[in-house]
């Protein structure tokens, strides 16, 4: 049985213009006991609403949320055995680091001495040992992030909710924290539900990624599956870069590019190829390089097929003989790599 079970969640908001907007439009989600699940999607897709419905700060119009079989919707936010790391951290500026971290224990009536041990333990887990006496104002952004984390895990919740917690950090720190968070989750042995709009972050950390769009779940799966086998055009475009082709039953694009499709699912359908699935070849799709983006080990090429149609994006290794703008190239691909979308 899963730890968290969301069924048929619906939530409709009134827009300022008087319209109605479904922030959640029939969402079902199961989260396992030690699973790291990421809710991914553009802003307004409903991911934060879903997180807040679990923590109790948003009500549902329809649907249920159960944690370990218990109905969460019957409980006030402060009675729900889940904790949250807020995007803004929401640290209590008038309290020391230690009192912030020990807050959940303090309000449960735990004694000062017992609290101290748990606070030290939590601070150690996030790498802030010895900083308990500091004021919040004296901490760096990264340190505040860790305090927020320590504060949320000190009461040992079965489920931790994280609302874009890394968005305020710079890139290096963010990448470091991504790894640390993943490690922490494994060490604690609890479930994380992590909200982000950054697909790279989602792919790096998650056991499963939930891609959301307009209040609905577009696809749920492990990062690799989400990347390699997007179910829909939206997922394919949202996760990483991709080339999309509208094909007919013969595998032809309107411009006349031909792809080998052994079992066409319909008279018209869409297929995708990741930039890395193309390679420079002696023959194949003929085109002209229109733009070269240097990425270090790799190059990103934009190639205009001679037959017309949209530019193709191609990843190539950088070497001395790499194509330059204006060069004529041929693109080949592994037929296995062509992925057909369901919609």
């Amino acid at each position: 049985m899963s730890l968290l079970s969301v069924r048929g969640a619906r939530r409709v908001f009134q827009t300022p213009e008087g319209g109605r907007l479904a922030a959640l439009d029939g969402v079902d989600l199961q989260v396992g006991a030690e699973e790291f699940v990421t809710l991914l999607g553009p802003s307004g897709c409903g991911k934060t609403t879903l997180l807040r419905a679990i923590s109790g700060f948003e009500a549902l119009d329809e649907g249920t949320i159960h944690l370990q079989g218990a109905d969460l919707l019957r409980l006030a936010p402060y009675r729900r055995p889940v904790n949250t790391v807020f995007q803004s951290y929401a640290l209590f500026g008038h309290m020391s680091v230690a009192r912030n971290v020990g807050y959940a224990l303090e309000v449960r009536g735990m004694g000062r001495a017992a609290r101290q041990a748990r606070v030290d333990e939590a601070l150690e887990k996030v790498g802030l040992s010895g900083l308990g006496a500091r004021a919040i104002g004296q901490l760096s952004g990264g340190q505040r992030q860790r305090v927020a984390l320590a504060r949320a895990i000190v009461a040992e919740p079965r489920l931790l909710l994280l609302d874009e917690p890394l968005s305020a950090l710079d890139r290096n720190l963010r990448q470091q924290m991504q790894l640390e968070l993943k490690a922490l989750q494994a060490r604690l042995g609890i479930a994380f539900v992590f909200v982000t709009h950054d697909q790279e972050e989602a792919l790096t950390m998650s056991d499963r990624v939930v891609v959301m769009r307009k209040g609905r779940i577009e696809q749920i799966g492990p990062p690799r599956e989400i990347y390699r086998k997007p179910r829909t055009r939206f997922v394919a475009e949202f996760i990483g870069e991709t080339n999309l082709f509208d094909l007919d039953a013969q595998g032809r694009t309107p411009e006349g590019l031909i792809f080998a499709v052994p079992n066409p699912p319909a008279a018209r359908f869409t297929a995708c190829l990741r930039p890395s699935d193309f390679h420079l070849a002696e023959q194949g799709i003929a085109g002209v390089v229109t733009k070269v983006v240097y990425l270090g080990a790799d190059l990103h090429l934009y190639v205009q097929p001679k037959v017309g149609g949209p530019e193709l994006r191609v990843t190539a290794r950088d070497h001395a003989a790499a194509p330059v703008v204006g060069a004529e190239v041929h693109l080949g691909h592994d037929p296995e790599a062509l992925h057909l979308l369901e919609a």
């Binding site: 936010p77 402060y78 640290l91 309000v107």
Partner: peptide, 25 residues
């Protein structure tokens, strides 16, 4: 506002949230 939510999220009821967070803030 997120501080009020954080307090309740961490298990403080309304009275505790008021005396320990809202009032001092």
């Amino acid at each position: 506002r997120s501080m009020v939510e954080a307090s309740m999220d961490l298990g403080a009821n309304r009275v505790q949230t008021f005396t320990k967070v809202v009032l001092p803030q």
